[in-house]
């Protein structure tokens, strides 16, 4: 098990115009773009969505290979979606096998569905690749802040996210250490069937959980010592500020969405 390879909300530092955008602008633009993706029907509208995405990827200087690498875990989902769509869409028969019938419409729909999911994931990855986790959390906290009125714990949620992000590397390091310690005493994590492997994880998880609770307790005390008392009256060192480029980015996303919507309405 190569724990160091975990790519969780991976961020590639950079200084491209996309990196420099306000995280809130990127979040809003992403949502608008996803709406556009779901409005698209024909190949023309998909082409527009694709070109826009390709342009943003090009500007962001994120390597397409890094984006492709991120697709691996969703491969199964893609194949599954494609097969379901191919066989369950009614229409002209392409070929027939036992109780399954593949249709021309099904193949077309599966194709577009896969393209849609691929673009959706690419756009989302683009956000996490170009935005530091901290900026992302900050952006979310700001965007969700109206929900504070209905007593939704926005600040607490953002705090939980940023502490979780802070402790991921620490806990991975600790897991490695415990694994080595258990291996030294003859534990076997690598061989055996699924059930045996799962059982082998118990002596790993128990100490990990105990230590996580101890950490949580100590961190809470340390935070109290540093005058943490919730989000009320708290200021931030780094203020988020909208710049003209951010407004432009959101407007562009909206324009794409409207264009796709209108074209889709006329059956393109």
């Amino acid at each position: 098990m190569a724990l160091k390879d975990i790519t969780l909300g991976q961020f590639f530092p950079g200084s491209s115009p996309i990196h420099r955008l306000d995280p809130r602008a990127k979040l809003i633009a992403l949502i608008v773009y996803i709406v556009a993706l779901f409005l698209a029907v024909g190949w023309q509208t998909y082409l527009i969505a694709f070109l826009v995405l390709a342009a943003v990827v090009a500007v962001s200087t994120v390597k397409p290979r890094a984006l492709l690498k991120g697709m691996k875990p969703v491969l199964f989902l893609l194949v599954f979606t494609a097969i379901l769509n191919m066989f369950y869409t009614p229409g002209r028969e392409l070929f027939h096998f036992w109780i399954f019938t593949m249709t021309y419409e099904g193949v077309a729909r599966a194709f577009f569905m896969v393209i849609r999911i691929l673009m959706l994931i690419t756009a989302t990855f683009l956000l996490t690749y170009t935005t530091s986790p901290l900026a992302l959390t900050d952006g979310l906290e700001h965007l969700l802040s109206p929900l504070k009125k209905i007593r939704f714990p926005v600040h607490e949620l953002a705090m939980i996210m940023s502490i979780a992000l802070r402790f991921i590397p620490t806990l991975i390091e600790e897991t490695d250490k415990i694994m080595s310690a258990q291996r030294a005493r003859g534990a076997d994590f690598d061989t055996g069937n699924l059930v045996q492997k799962a059982k082998a994880l118990i002596p790993l998880l128990v100490p990990l959980f105990i230590s996580a609770f101890r950490r949580a307790d100590e961190l809470a005390t340390a935070m109290e010592c540093r005058c943490y008392h919730g989000g009320e009256g708290r200021t931030r060192m780094k203020q988020l500020r909208y710049r003209p480029a951010d407004a432009l980015f959101i407007l562009a996303a909206l324009a794409v969405c409207v264009a796709v919507g209108v074209l889709a309405h006329f059956g393109w």
Partner: peptide
């Protein structure tokens, strides 16, 4: 405190 890892809040 004693454990440096358990008192650093931000990444």
């Amino acid at each position: 405190f004693q454990n440096p890892d358990n008192q650093i809040v931000a990444s």
